[in-house]
Nucleic acid binder design. Structure first.
Lengths: 344, 344
DNA sequence: CTGTTAGCGCTTTCAG
DNA sequence: CTGAAAGCGCTAACAG
């Protein structure tokens, strides 16, 4: 069907190597350049990247594996990663792990068979086993957003513990004492556990007791956020504020208070994570921890391309980025009397 | 680095072709099967899909080009497409057009160079020029969600005109007469124009005059939805109901009424498009046109794979799927007196 | 600067 | 059923 370098050879009478050189930007006589260019136009020639990849052993393609392509968080990350990669003329193979470790492992093997030059992964698994094939094949990997238990790969993320800590501090500054948390559990996800620890740090520093029924740990999902919020609201002695530890849980919690007709911040104060238009959509505007998603995506690409460029091994690095807080009006100031009464 | 079929040849003493046959599921003596399998395990051999693709001229890879990977609408579509493709052991090359026609055209050329077997595209452009290279290279293309002006490619979509028509009918049944529309314009997008026509159909059938200031046509974006909604609300004689013709515009409209402190449905009734958790998130629940996104994605894959399987050309087909309406409480019943007064 | 040659890893004739 | 040989489209030495 499509023209090959051989057709150009026929048309121009030049050798394959001259044409190849022209295609790769090396020096060719102006006259020959013109002839090749003319033939390319005439034949609608396009390089066959497959053939090129076979010989160069570089496909100029990066695989990106995300835990779920349906999550707006990942969509945003993918957008920034894609932009950064396109600038460097890299293609992007996106794989959806559907929040399933088996699919995730399959995705890695798939990408390896496709001979990608490197892989960026926002992982489902907590352990690194699924990445062993990549390591064996010497294909560089950069983790994004979530680190793994062993820490053997480069990772770009935020300081989750600190971010949660600071969020709780803001709640404390509004005199909240009965503060609950909904997060993904350590088995399910890295960030959930870290954020939980940040919550504990702040509570302990404030000398507050950790109430068992105020701790909701489970899946990273809208459903879990929704159900947990409902449970918290139905407690005999409900919390006055809740920290929602990721985007999906934040969504679920908002759905829940809508369903139950609970008012925010009059009845409950909320602090969410990952501001993806959510704070603009719902009334009142939510306080949220915001991650520098663009910087994170770009940094991951930068590190990966650096590895691809120079095959020398370097010890794994963790890039930890700063978060910020988007203020809203989802937090009520607890008056001291009430605070005292509640705190008792 | 990684093992090749040659290493297996050394280990087993068998010929390349026998090994290749085994890898492709053809008949090989049980004894030889066992030897090959053992060598594969030992060497961690994985097929080099690049090399295979070079000779078979099939990469078992499909390109998917979406207008924006940041849009939840596309994320959902991608999820279903990815699932369907994975089941058929196809890989998926996702390209983000960033709502830019130039990038979109670039994406097509990129995929062609990567020798994808077929392309699914949710297009930015209204005209098909950017797909000419694919047609020239005999790579099958299926359009999804949005059709092009010429209709020369297969397309899976809904009946946009009818969907909008029915939405307006529901508003009319609630006695609304002053009905506005916010949609993407025909220059920007296929669906916008179709939905606009459906709106006109319903208004004309009801014998209502089309008020110029109630027609907002522009970009498919949150910003446009937000700004347009604000303009409508600030009119001297504002509409009592608004049809929001896509997800981003629906988001923008909700943001706008939140900002202005307008109540829905007391002050204004809303009817949106594409229910992607939005109706659950905001209060009150929005009435929405919902598209069968999963069916659409799966159908697009089915058609594409069929084309890939049999290279014979068939005239382009348009698959038009049915929509449904998710009811909410975002529409107020206009009392007849008011209706008469307003309708005047 | 240009051409010749070899070969990337695999599949595919075609004999045997 | 198995093996030898050719070749997919391109790049990478090496001579010239």
């Amino acid at each position: 069907m499509s023209a090959t370098i051989r057709d150009i050879k026929e048309k121009t009478g030049l050798s394959l190597s001259t044409i190849s050189k022209y295609l790769n930007g090396r020096n060719v006589l102006p006259e020959n350049q013109a002839r090749i260019e003319a033939a390319i136009q005439e034949l609608h020639y396009e390089v066959n990247e497959i053939a090129r990849g076979l010989v160069t052993n570089r496909t100029r393609t990066v695989g990106v594996v995300v835990y779920s392509v349906e999550s707006l968080f990942n969509g945003t990350l993918l957008h920034h990663i894609g932009n950064a990669l396109r600038e460097e003329r890299y293609g992007i193979f996106i794989c959806d792990s559907c929040n399933d470790e088996k699919i995730e492992a399959e995705n890695i093997r798939f990408l390896l068979k496709k001979k990608v030059d490197g892989i960026i992964v926002v992982p489902v698994s907590r352990k690194q086993d699924f990445l062993n094939p990549a390591r064996d094949a010497d294909v560089p990997v950069v983790l994004l957003d979530r680190s793994l238990s062993e820490g053997a790969f480069d990772c770009v993320r935020i300081d989750n513990r600190k971010a949660a800590f600071e969020a709780v501090k803001i709640l404390l500054n509004h005199n909240h004492r009965k503060i609950a948390i909904i997060c993904s559990d350590s088995e399910h996800e890295y960030t959930g556990y870290e954020r939980y620890k940040g919550y504990l740090d702040a509570m302990e520093q404030a000398g507050l007791e950790i109430v068992g029924s105020y701790q909701k740990q489970g899946c990273h999902s809208i459903e879990f956020g929704q159900a947990s919020m409902k449970e918290l609201l139905c407690l005999k002695d409900p919390p006055t504020a809740v920290l929602l530890c990721n985007y999906e849980i934040s969504l679920g919690a908002v759905i829940s208070i809508n369903e139950l007709g609970i008012r925010c911040p009059e009845d409950i104060s909320l602090f969410g994570f990952d501001d993806l238009i959510l704070s603009h959509l719902v009334k009142p505007q939510l306080y949220m921890v915001v991650q520098p998603m663009r910087d994170m995506g770009e940094k991951a690409v930068e590190i990966l391309l650096h590895h691809i460029g120079s095959k020398e091994k370097t010890p794994p690095v963790e890039i930890v980025m700063n978060t910020s807080v988007r203020t809203g009006n989802s937090i009520a100031k607890v008056t001291s009397e009430v605070s005292a009464a509640n705190g008792g």
